[in-house]
Amino acid sequence: MFWNSERRAPLIKLSNYWPSIRDRASLSDVRLHDLRHTFASHAAMSNETLSMIGRLLGHRSLSATCRYAHLGDEHVSNAAQQIGRTIKQLLM
């Protein structure tokens, strides 16, 4: 979602402007849909909740948000290591 600070509301029909924006940014092969996935994934890797990510993306269901928010391998590995350390401390 792109925000119009003057109207204090989301921009409507960004797709009308996207080809020009994409060309000026030299992002010839990037779709708006790609940006939504990237936004959701970075939000998830920044520990934002799925509920908040869904709300930011305008999703009505959590299952839709789950399809957008992907965690990078490094974040998954770090989480597994942290959980392992926590379990190890509990067992000591």
Rank of each mutant, 00 (worst) to 15 (best):
L32A: 04
T49G: 08
K88Y: 06
A25P: 00
L14T: 03
L62P: 01
S5H: 13
A79Y: 01
P19R: 12
S5Q: 08
S15Q: 09
S51I: 07
K13E: 11
S15E: 06
R24M: 04
L71E: 02
F39Y: 07
R22N: 06
K88S: 12
K88E: 12
L14W: 08
L32S: 06
M45T: 02
N78L: 14
R85T: 06
D34M: 13
S5W: 00
V76E: 09
R60Y: 01
A44C: 05
E6R: 15
W18H: 11
M52C: 09
S5I: 09
C66Y: 00
V30I: 14
S41I: 06
V76A: 10
D29Y: 09
A9Q: 15
L56A: 13
S46C: 12
E74H: 12
D34R: 11
T49Q: 03
I21K: 13
A79G: 03
I21D: 03
R85I: 03
E74F: 05
M45P: 00
L27D: 02
S46D: 09
R36I: 10
S20C: 11
T65L: 08
D34Y: 09
G84C: 03
A25R: 13
S28F: 13
M1K: 14
S28P: 02
H37I: 10
N78F: 05
A40K: 05
Y17K: 13
L71T: 04
Y17S: 14
W3E: 07
Q81K: 12
L91N: 07
Q89H: 11
T65D: 05
T38F: 15
M45W: 02
L14F: 14
L32C: 08
L35G: 05
E48R: 06
L62Y: 01
H70N: 11
D34A: 10
A79Q: 08
N16I: 10
M92W: 03
C66H: 05
S28M: 11
A43D: 01
Y17R: 15
T86I: 11
Q89K: 15
L56F: 03
Q81S: 06
E74I: 10
H37D: 03
K13T: 03
H59E: 07
A40H: 01
L91W: 02
I12E: 03
S20D: 10
L27Q: 05
A9R: 14
T38M: 13
T38E: 14
H70Y: 04
H75G: 12
M1R: 08
S46E: 02
L11I: 14
S41R: 06
S77W: 04
S61V: 02
